[in-house]
Amino acid sequence: MKRISDHFASVLAYVAGLSLVLMMVHVTLDVVLKYFFKQPIPGTAEVVAAYYMIGTVFLPLAYIEVHNRPIVVELLYDRLPQGLQRPLDVLATILSIAFYAFLAWQSIKIALTALENREYIDGVWKVVVWPSRFLIPLGLLAACAALALRLMTLLTGGKAEHGHAETV
């Protein structure tokens, strides 16, 4: 199960990376065409905001959780005895699952409404955005699955693998 989770999280992270590269190319091309040829790419801002940014932000969440590499603040944790660290790891994982699940639930409702209304942004071009609304719950639910695996590991006596988290 862990291998499948790792693989799925990696695929989502690669898609997020591709989204970032496409965003850079799209925006750069739009700027070049706009300032050198007076022909900007219609709908650039809409596509960037509705697709590229959402993919870049939400799709890699599972990868971050699978590798246990979120940004953390450890004021006291490292100074606590091992006997207290495990329950705190369990509590933090449960709270993270609850937070991601709540956001996923809300974003699924928004995505379904967008699908029902065939949501689009009207500008120079009509940009269909309802499909992008499903990227948010996809990323959040994948993060929930990764955290659920971590929770099972913690509850069965295993140790959560700590990546090289950015510590503040």
Rank of each mutant, 00 (worst) to 15 (best):
W125D: 10
Q85P: 02
D89W: 02
I121K: 07
I136C: 02
R86W: 02
L112T: 14
V27T: 12
A165I: 13
T28E: 03
Y35S: 08
L80N: 12
R79Y: 11
R3G: 09
V57F: 14
P40M: 09
G83V: 07
A13T: 04
A143Y: 02
A101P: 03
F102D: 09
A160G: 12
G157D: 10
V168D: 15
A45N: 07
F102V: 15
L29G: 15
P60S: 06
S107F: 09
F134L: 08
L59C: 06
H162C: 12
P60K: 02
M24A: 14
V47H: 00
P81R: 06
T28D: 07
V66N: 00
G157N: 12
K38F: 14
Y35C: 04
P137K: 01
A13L: 12
G158C: 11
M1P: 04
V90M: 00
Y63C: 01
I108S: 07
L95T: 13
A114S: 11
A104V: 05
A62Q: 01
M23D: 05
R79V: 07
P81C: 05
A160K: 13
W125S: 08
L75E: 14
R118F: 15
E161F: 15
S96R: 05
A50P: 09
A45V: 12
V168Q: 15
V27Q: 08
L155N: 10
Y120T: 13
G43D: 09
R150I: 08
L155G: 09
G163R: 07
L20A: 14
E74Y: 13
